[in-house]
Design a protein around this nucleic acid. Structure first.
Lengths: 124, 124
DNA sequence: CTTGACTTACTAAATAATTAGTATTATTAA
DNA sequence: TTAATAATACTAATTATTTAGTAAGTCAAG
């Protein structure tokens, strides 16, 4: 048996952002947040939350009537693995070209640049 | 009218890497390269190449018997837009957190670090 | 109690992505 | 010229992803 792909699809990621933003959330919480932006059905949100739970990204707990979902693991860890995945897929594992792209393209504030430089100084 | 999603899916990206690596390639070229790594049918490769052409990522030219595919636009441009897309989806547009992730996680050689620092110094 | 609002479980339709089969045409070697 | 090889076009099956409908249970207000 294989443990099913744990990577987040687009719809899943969108919902993870909502949950991350609230620490914890019910289907309704997520539904209402999404509705502010776009049309979506309550049960669609529910389905994705269930999938996220099955994939091990969320854990649920019955609280009063409804389930309350919380992240099952640290956001930074999840994001880190998405970054790795991306670097592997797009840059075949080499992080440097991505950094170069980012530095050249991204509009970074002087403060941002200063902070990154500080990190790099430490890393060296 | 909308120009159709130009973003590269997984299978498409894999094949773009092959074409990028060879400057130009026939279906057979790509097929043989992929076969070294995994099982795949000739016609599957053909289908994806055709999709890439329709999406405007490749242009083809008849040469002898077979089509020869070449990138339709600079690799750096395509990658850049994938990076933007990723930053938007995962970091909601903020490049800095991604940089931080990369610097903290990625195994960068001292040379890499030095080079990035140089870039940042210029950017500042 | 009974009604209405809310919730989940289960099901499934719609779309996107991936993979490959078959028919047909063209080329080359014998 | 004929058989084998190689190419594309067209079709389609499979799988993954996204979205949502329906039935059934639960609680709370009247």
């Amino acid at each position: 048996m294989r443990h099913p792909s744990t990577t987040l699809t687009g719809a899943e990621l969108e919902i993870m952002h909502v949950v991350w933003g609230m620490e914890q959330a019910t289907v309704r919480d997520v539904y209402e947040t999404l509705r502010e932006r776009r049309k979506v059905a309550y049960t669609s949100v529910m389905t994705v939350l269930k999938i996220l739970e099955q994939k091990g990204h969320l854990k649920k707990k019955q609280e009063n009537r409804a389930y309350v979902y919380r992240p099952a693991r640290p956001r930074a860890q999840v994001v880190q693995s998405m970054v790795r995945d991306f670097v592997d897929r797009v840059f075949q594992g080499a992080a440097k070209p991505l950094l170069v792209h980012l530095v050249e393209d991204a509009r970074l504030s002087p403060q941002d640049v200063a902070e990154i430089r500080r990190l790099l100084r430490k890393a060296q």
